[in-house]
Design a protein around this nucleic acid. Structure first.
Lengths: 209, 209
DNA sequence: CATATTATTAGACCATACGGTCAAACCGCA
DNA sequence: TGCGGTTTGACCGTATGGTCTAATAATATG
């Protein structure tokens, strides 16, 4: 967590720091991202940086929580009323919301998936740890819900199924990121449909027994 | 390419160097892998290393070509006689061959997928560049064949489809790597069937129009 | 056999970049 | 003027990939 002083900075300065950090982390991942370059690009001196943050990991955690959690919380999801009929449309709605935000701030998605190289121990006691659990937990509960409703296959180890969905999601996001420049809002909604279609193909109880 | 002198080393020494390099690259990827640590573990001095290789990239390329190309060529595949009926069984056979080798030398698979951080320009003029093209080209031609035979969906951009399959493959491989210790040969063959089942789910012409 | 020449090896050293520290200067305000 | 919150950039220890010289091992030559 950043020093309390950080909150006393002007919102512009704060945003400027976190946004440049986010872009750099999104582009290179945590370990490969250069703290020095972030500070240079943000126009902040090293001393100042360490006056507000404990270390690189602190800046990273602060950055991710700032944007990723905001993104997560902005998706208002109703898990309760899910039925076999509403399952996929609900999921599609989530993706549509996601992709809309994707269009506005593409690098937010990058920063969400940039945590690979950071050791999990260091993450565990941070707010980000909670967030990671939230994301995985959310996906997990969605899939389990789907299984209970009979719309998601149950013939694979859960763990495998989760990572496959994550991988598929990542790959699709990357593709989407490349397509971004030529995409209209309509196309983005279509992409959400496409993604759902893919998930349906993969996750629906097997037709190839 | 390594200096010609490298071939004059005893096969044991050569293998020892390339194998430790492969494990390190497989574990950490190209950029994160430490050349110093590789040399230390391989019990070779820096001077000697640079007596045989141009630089780190050269060692990497040599390593990957040594194992990955060997793996690729070991899969003898008959693309010609493919029909709608033999398509999936053939693919399954390929995976079974792959997984068998996977059991013997798991790190070979790691090294195949460790090229991310290396810039493509540097790769382009190497034998490894050809290999990358070979792998992608192989996957591409397989999928195109499948499309032509009507067993692979054609409603998605090819580029997207390729990367999705790659992602799925990677994720499954990683899962497999974790499961390795507790796996019998039978279980590996079952895993190949599982993988094919997944690919079929994802790639078969959509039943959710 | 002894000497000269070449192939090989070891490791000290270099420039660079990294994350992180710290004393000094700066600046707004009492 | 003095004080406390803020900022700066020089500096530190460490690790990186890469270079180079000097010593050693192997081989050819008299």
């Amino acid at each position: 967590m950043p020093r309390p002083r950080f909150k006393k900075l002007s919102p512009e300065k704060r945003e400027q720091i976190l946004e440049t950090a986010a872009k750099e982390f999104a582009l290179h991942g945590y370990k490969e991202a250069s703290l020095n370059k972030i500070l240079a690009k943000a126009g902040i001196s090293k001393g100042a940086a360490y006056y507000y943050f404990d270390n690189k990991a602190d800046l990273y955690v602060t950055t991710v929580t700032r944007y990723a959690i905001e993104l997560l919380k902005s998706l208002n999801i109703d898990f309760e009323g899910l039925t076999a009929l509403t399952f996929w449309p609900t999921l599609q709605n989530i993706y549509e919301q996601q992709f809309t935000q994707f269009a506005e701030r593409p690098w937010v998605f990058g920063v969400v998936k940039s945590d690979g190289p950071m050791d999990k121990e260091a993450l565990a006691n941070t707010q980000l740890g909670d967030y990671s659990q939230d994301v995985e937990g959310m996906l997990e509960s969605i899939l389990r819900q789907g299984m209970a409703l009979g719309v998601v296959r149950t013939d694979l180890p859960d763990e495998l199924l989760f990572s496959l969905v994550m991988a598929l999601d990542d790959a699709h996001d990357k593709w989407l990121l490349n397509q971004m420049p030529t995409m209209t809002e309509k196309a983005l909604q279509a992409a959400a449909g496409q993604m759902i279609n893919l998930l349906q193909s993969l996750l629906s109880p097997s037709t190839h027994p």
